[in-house]
């Protein structure tokens, strides 16, 4: 049961003078090695130098008022804000994990509109500020499992995507939802680092989209979503591999057929449409049985991966009778 708080504050309501200094969350790391070692190393081993003095760059605008969520995951150690904002796959801003923190400042997050179209009774375009006020913002911690076999635990901020879906009244013919991410070749000028066809597209089956765990995500750590994490609005589907959770969404379309999705188009044998977290189905290039916990020392990183990322109680029934090896 959620308690609605009177007029939840949004990022734009807060004067910048009241914003908590970001350093509070950042892991302070030692800046030990000298410039000599770093530059000499650059010759032989590229980017290791960055590790000695990890850059701390966060592109986000302010705090959010949140309420506790009954759907939050408990008993997990949170990944640090520093790691959540400096270890990102956001290929429009470069293919290295540290690139989005460096480059995503270029993303223009205001004004921002999401166009909802397709098989709905009332197609609508929502402004980001409307989305921030539509429902009380919940503090919802989820495990996050990347298809690359690493994982985080992230305190997202948002509300169930179903709340937004209700606003547009989908027709009974709507069977799937297609998400389109922002793309501007002039702003996201790192896109040629891969051969992906932009913009990024993802999709969910209607029941998956309506599942209360599917989170319309507007922030993390009680802060508005940092650019490198998919600002200003993204989807989070915690029982699926991370790439299913599209970032910086500008379009949501309700359709009757399974939509084409980016990574599935790139390599269908590696990235299925469903891509539910499943330790029993290997990626062709690595096992999915275990995962590396981000932020732990190398000898303590491994942990076992859970079926549906541990959210089976909420989602397993949607896949009753489905062969999860065939529909990976």
């Amino acid at each position: 049961m959620l308690i609605r708080k009177p007029s939840p504050l949004t990022g734009s309501d807060i004067p910048s003078s009241e914003i908590t200094p970001k350093e509070k969350w950042l892991n302070r790391r030692s800046f030990l090695a000298g410039a000599v070692a770093t530059s000499a190393t650059a010759l032989v081993a590229g980017e290791i130098g960055n590790l000695i003095a990890p850059p701390t760059k966060v592109h986000a605008a302010g705090k959010l008022q949140t309420v506790k969520s009954p759907l939050t995951t408990t008993g997990e150690e949170l990944t640090s804000f520093q790691d959540i904002t400096h270890y990102n796959n956001f290929y429009e801003f470069g293919v290295n994990k540290s690139d989005p923190a460096q480059n995503a400042g270029a993303l223009p997050t205001r004004p921002w509109a999401i166009k909802i179209s397709g098989l709905v009774k009332t197609p609508k375009t929502f402004d980001i500020d409307d989305l921030l006020k539509l429902r009380p913002l919940e503090d919802r911690t989820y495990r996050f499992r990347c298809v690359e076999a690493w994982s985080m635990v992230i305190p997202w901020v948002g509300y169930s995507f179903s709340e937004l879906i209700k606003q547009v009244e989908p027709l009974s013919s709507a069977k799937y939802v297609e998400f389109t991410s922002y793309f501007n070749a002039k702003i996201e000028k790192w896109w040629p680092e891969s051969t992906i066809q932009w913009p990024y597209k993802e999709g969910l089956r209607m029941d998956e989209a309506m599942n209360p765990l599917t989170l319309l995500t507007l922030g993390l750590y009680d802060d508005v979503l940092p650019n490198q994490d998919g600002a200003p609005v993204r989807i989070i589907v915690p029982w699926k591999y991370g790439f299913k959770s599209a970032k910086s969404i500008v379009g949501i379309k309700f359709v009757d057929k399974q939509p084409a999705t980016t990574w599935n188009d790139m390599a269908a044998n590696e990235y299925g449409f469903y891509s539910n977290v499943n330790p029993n189905v290997d990626h062709p290039r690595w096992s999915q049985k275990t995962e590396r916990v981000i932020g732990k020392p190398f000898y303590a990183q491994r942990r076992n991966t859970l079926l549906f990322n541990g959210y089976g109680d909420f989602v397993a029934s949607m896949y009753n009778g489905m062969d999860l090896r065939k529909y990976y």
């Binding site: 090695a33 190393t41 290791i48 590790l51 400096h86 590396r292």
Partner: peptide
């Protein structure tokens, strides 16, 4: 020069300063 990458890995392993994903690093 050839030993510096190793030195950085060893130092980083000891101080847990190898970035968010040390195994991959």
């Amino acid at each position: 020069c050839c030993l510096i990458p190793l030195a950085i890995l060893v130092q980083g392993s000891i101080t847990n300063n190898l970035g968010p994903d040390p195994t991959a690093q």
